Amino acid sequence: MVETLKLVYVLIIFYSIFLGIIVCNSSTIMYYDVPCEKDKDCPAPPRFNIRCRKGYCVRI
Score class of each variant (00 low, 15 high):
Cys24Tyr: 11
Val8Pro: 00
Cys57Tyr: 00
Cys42Ile: 06
Tyr9Ser: 11
Ile17Ala: 08
Val23Ile: 13
Gly20Ser: 06
Thr4Met: 15
Tyr9Phe: 14
Ile29Glu: 02
Ile60Met: 14
Ile21Arg: 08
Phe48Ser: 15
Tyr15Lys: 06
Glu37Asn: 04
Arg47Lys: 15
Ala44Gln: 15
Arg53Asn: 04
Ile13Asp: 01
Val58Pro: 07
Ile22Leu: 11
Tyr31Gln: 03
Phe48Met: 15
Asn25Pro: 02
Val58Glu: 07
Phe18Asn: 10
Met30Asn: 09
Val58Ser: 00
Met1Glu: 04
Cys42Tyr: 00
Tyr56Gln: 13
Cys24Trp: 13
Lys6Leu: 06
Tyr9Ala: 15
Ile13Leu: 10
Val23Arg: 02
Val8Arg: 08
Val58Tyr: 01
Tyr56Glu: 11
Phe48His: 13
Ile60Ser: 14
Pro43Leu: 07
Arg59Pro: 04
Leu19Glu: 06
Ile12His: 08
Asp39Asn: 12
Ser27His: 02
Ile12Phe: 08
Val34Pro: 00
Cys52Trp: 01
Phe18Val: 02
Leu19Trp: 07
Phe14Lys: 06
Val10Thr: 15
Lys6Asp: 01
Pro45Ala: 12
Val2Glu: 13
Ile13Cys: 09
Asn25Lys: 14
Val2Ala: 12
Ile22Pro: 01
Ser26Phe: 05
Phe48Asn: 10
Tyr56Arg: 15
Asp33Glu: 13
Pro46Lys: 08
Tyr32Ala: 06
Cys36Gly: 01
Cys52Phe: 01
Tyr15Ala: 15
Tyr32Ile: 05
Glu3Tyr: 14
Ile12Met: 11
Lys54Asp: 12
Arg47Val: 09
Cys36Leu: 00
Gly20Glu: 01
Ala44Tyr: 11
Val2Leu: 11
Val34Ala: 03
Lys6Tyr: 08
Arg53Gln: 12
Leu5Ala: 03
Lys40Cys: 10
Cys42Lys: 00
Ile13Asn: 03
Val10Ile: 15
Leu11Trp: 08
Val23Met: 06
Phe14Val: 07
Arg53Tyr: 07
Met30Ile: 14
Cys36Pro: 00
Pro46Glu: 03
Pro35Phe: 04
Gly20Ala: 06
Leu7Tyr: 09
Lys54Ile: 09
Ile50Leu: 09
